[in-house]
Structures are given as structure tokens and as C-alpha cells.
Design a protein around this nucleic acid. Structure first.
Lengths: 192, 192
DNA sequence: TTTGTCGCTTAATCTAGATTAAGAAAGAAG
DNA sequence: CTTCTTTCTTAATCTAGATTAAGCGACAAA
């Protein structure tokens, strides 16, 4: 069964017809690494679900420094929540880090699906709730842990990502410079 | 009309019966400043809606340092999302900063209400979505802005809070020490 | 093969913000 | 009013992590 349906059925149960309807409202695309799916300043029209490959969302501040908000690999959703909800220009980029197959669900179709399959309201509520919990934990970690502690937590939480994405991406996610990350990493390795 | 119903009707419309049912599932309590509504290590059983006064949620790390996750004043919801969803012990405290009237909605009643009034599924989805957007913005701000810039943003976003809560609370929310906050504040004032 | 680009490392120097300490101001509590 | 406790301020010192800079290895294009 489609990965995205499995993902939904982790939280709500759909009938065969509902599954079909859902899929009929999505499109699947293949993207090469380095493709930009969403640009800062643009309005986010879709939620993206990753079938394979890796995406990231990030912003760029005045100083031309990138900051990674989220990574998304197999089985994860990604988007610019602010822009998607408000339909105003956002300040996030969404980029492909590793060749990817992505399911696109447009904002309009999402609204239609909420009406046709009210259970999806529940599904996306739960999805958003989990996302909020993860985000709050990350925020608290940024306030109270050192870069090294955050790195350790990251390694435990996303062991596969470390091997797959460039170090500078992880540094950016953790909120440190690539130079400091490199120093920190070699120090950590020497300890063990 | 009850403030909490106004709050809900910002996003969904309820019938008179639904309003009545909703209110029948809540309790309203008065709390004095310094009351702890939820302790770290306890399981969060309620969502809290603030009719008046001010609450905060915070955690305490190994070093006995407090970190404020959120403030909640009139018309805001607060809780320990992680613990509320998982029904496992959380690590947040919820404390009253200023004498407050608070509406309590238990987890069980919330689930019942989802079944009886499916529209509430939508309401809480939207509430959580907005919360996530705000949280993501704060996270990015913590990664990319200086303490001073974060303080300016905070002042614009929550002008009333600055007068009402102790400086050390705001310092904690911004992620700096009270000493540094004091220095930063007097520097900012001298500039203008 | 060469040239260019990009990511990683190492090291020296610098700074935003932490820590420590101590006094002043302002509430609470009796 | 007085005492106690908490908050705020100021200042000296310290440090996690930033900045700058330079060299190296990998890989892709020509």
C-alpha cells in the first residue's frame, strides 16, 4: 500500500473508497537533489510527503546565513506551515538534499478532503500536535543544552540522517557554525 | 458570552446546545499567584484556558535553571502538550504568575467532545497549527537573532506582558540570564 | 589532465552572553 | 513600621561558540 496511506492509517482508519479519493487528490513527483520546491517570498501551495529521498526547509537571514528548520526523509511531511495556513509569502525555502519521490497535496485539495473525509481533520490535528511537541522540545533544548548535548540528542533521534546529509546541514539545524561543529565532533570522537 | 466560547467561535460556529454541552464539560477555578497547577514529573490531565490573570509553563534543567516555554494571559490556552497527549509524566511546570481565573478541560472530556461535536476537532487543529507556527518562528529567531533583536520582537508582540511579569521571566523566555537582560535593557533605553 | 567548486578541518583571534559577587530597590509578611 | 525575601542593577571576569583565514580532499566539468 502507498506509504502515505500507511502514514495516515497510523492514526485513523480509511475505507477503500476514502483511500482512493485521497490518492486522487494528490500528485507524485520525482525531484533531483538541489531542486528548490519552495522559495522564500513565495506562497506555499502544498504539503509535501516524502516517499523517498531527503528534503529540508530553511530560511536565510540578513547575514546570508542559512538556518535549517526541519529535515524530512521517508515517511515525513514537510511544508511552510505559516505560508500554507495564511496563504501569504513565507520566508522558508524547501530544497531536495537527496533525489526524492514526493507526494504533493495542495491546500485546496486538503480543504476538500477535510469536507469529504472528516476523519482527516483528526489525522492532521494529531500530526500537527506531534509536530508541536517535537518543536517545543527542540526549543527547550536550544535554551538549556550545550551544542554538544544537542548533537548527542540529535544522533540518538536521527541516526540515519547523520550519514546521509552534509555536516554543515546538521550544524545549521543545531544552531552552530560548520567550523565549530567540526571541532566539536572531533572532540567527541576523541573522548570515546 | 463566556470568553472561551468566543475563543472557539473565532474558528468554528457552535449551536446553543453545543455551547451548553461544551461548558458542561469544563470547570472554572480561581488560583492565587504562585499556585502550581502542574508539576514536573506529573501527568497533565487538563488543557487550561485563561479567563483572567497570567500563567506560565517552564522546565528546570539539571543546573536548577528555569526556562519559560510559554506565557498565557487572558484568552490563551496553556498545557503540557507532550504529557497531555502521551499521558506520560512531563517535565513542565505550570504556574500562576498573577491571580487567575482558569477554565479546565480534562483530557477525557476533550475526547468526548471530539466525538459529540466533531467541529471541535477542527478548532483544536487550527489552534495547534497556529501554536506550531508561532513556535517555529520563535525557534528560528533563537537560531538567527541576537538577544537584543529577540527582545525587540517580544516587546512588539506582547506589549502588555512586559509591564505585568517580572523581568527575570522575560529573560528566561528569551533565553538569557537576568543579569544580561538588565544590562541589555538599560543599553536599549539609553539609545532611544 | 587541469581547473573550479564545495565541503571539511585546524588554528588564531574575537565577542555575545554567562558567571560570580555584592549592593540597591521593591515588595510581601508580620 | 520593620524585617525578610525576592528582584533588579552594576561591574569584573570568564567561556562557548563565532569569525576569519588558510589548506586539504573529493568530485565534477572541460
Amino acid at each position: 500500500m502507498a506509504l502515505i496511506l500507511q502514514n495516515i492509517e497510523q492514526h485513523v482508519t480509511l475505507t477503500a473508497q476514502e483511500k482512493e479519493l485521497f490518492l486522487s487528490k494528490t500528485e507524485t513527483h520525482h525531484y533531483k537533489a538541489k531542486t528548490i520546491l519552495l522559495n522564500s517570498g513565495a506562497i506555499c501551495k502544498h504539503s509535501y510527503f516524502v516517499n523517498s529521498g531527503i528534503l529540508r526547509s530553511f530560511n536565510i537571514n540578513d547575514n546570508i546565513v542559512e538556518h535549517v528548520l526541519t529535515f524530512a526523509c521517508e515517511g515525513w511531511w514537510i511544508g511552510d506551515m505559516y505560508s500554507l495556513l495564511s496563504q501569504k509569502p513565507g520566508n522558508l525555502f524547501i530544497e531536495v538534499l537527496e533525489d526524492a519521490e514526493v507526494v504533493l497535496l495542495s491546500k485546496e485539495n486538503q480543504e476538500i478532503l477535510y469536507r469529504e473525509i472528516p476523519k482527516l481533520e483528526r489525522f492532521f490535528r494529531i500530526l500537527t500536535e506531534n509536530s508541536l511537541v517535537a518543536n517545543q522540545e527542540r526549543l527547550m533544548d536550544n535554551l538549556s543544552l550545550t551544542a554538544e548535548e544537542r548533537f548527542e540528542k540529535f544522533c540518538k533521534k536521527y541516526p540515519t540522517l547523520i550519514q546521509k546529509v552534509a555536516q554543515k546541514q546538521i550544524a545549521s539545524y543545531l544552531g552552530v557554525t560548520p567550523e565549530f561543529f567540526s571541532k566539536m565532533k572531533s572532540k567527541t570522537l576523541r573522548k570515546q
